[in-house]
């Protein structure tokens, strides 16, 4: 649950919306100033999604109430590992979600 008020949430949405639009628009509008993005910059930019997504998702999986939990009693972690394997081989978001949720529910309610 977030405790932020409605105005703060809307301001955050506005800031992210405008910032995202600037990122998408900048080179289309400024075309000609920069002939091409150097290959080197491309490769560095390609690191960002991998690093930031891992930084978002790892605490969701490896921590429980702030403490490291890597045992087999951590259902989220186990389901996440299964989902990762499925995602790696299928590259299919829908299948990944279905298998991941199915694994979690199996561990929570059946095992």
């Amino acid at each position: 649950m977030t405790d932020y008020g409605s105005l703060v949430i809307w301001m955050a949405i506005a800031v992210v919306a405008v910032g995202t639009w600037v990122f998408r628009t900048v080179f289309v509008v400024l075309f000609g100033l920069l002939d091409d993005v150097p290959q080197r910059v491309h490769r560095i930019l390609a690191l960002i999604p991998a690093a930031v997504i891992a930084a978002i998702v790892a605490p969701d999986l490896f921590l429980r109430e702030g403490a490291l939990a890597v045992g087999i009693d951590n259902e989220q972690l186990l389901a996440g590992i299964v989902a990762f394997v499925v995602a790696w081989y299928t590259e299919n978001m829908f299948v990944t979600i279905v298998v991941g949720m199915g694994t979690l529910w199996t561990l929570l309610f059946i095992v």
Partner: peptide
């Protein structure tokens, strides 16, 4: 929990080579 699952489904697309995996 579907949110981390979506992140997992997306991150594999960005794991292109050794540097991205290490990142």
């Amino acid at each position: 929990f579907a949110v981390p699952l979506i992140f997992i489904a997306i991150i594999v697309r960005f794991l292109e080579d050794v540097p991205t995996v290490l990142a």
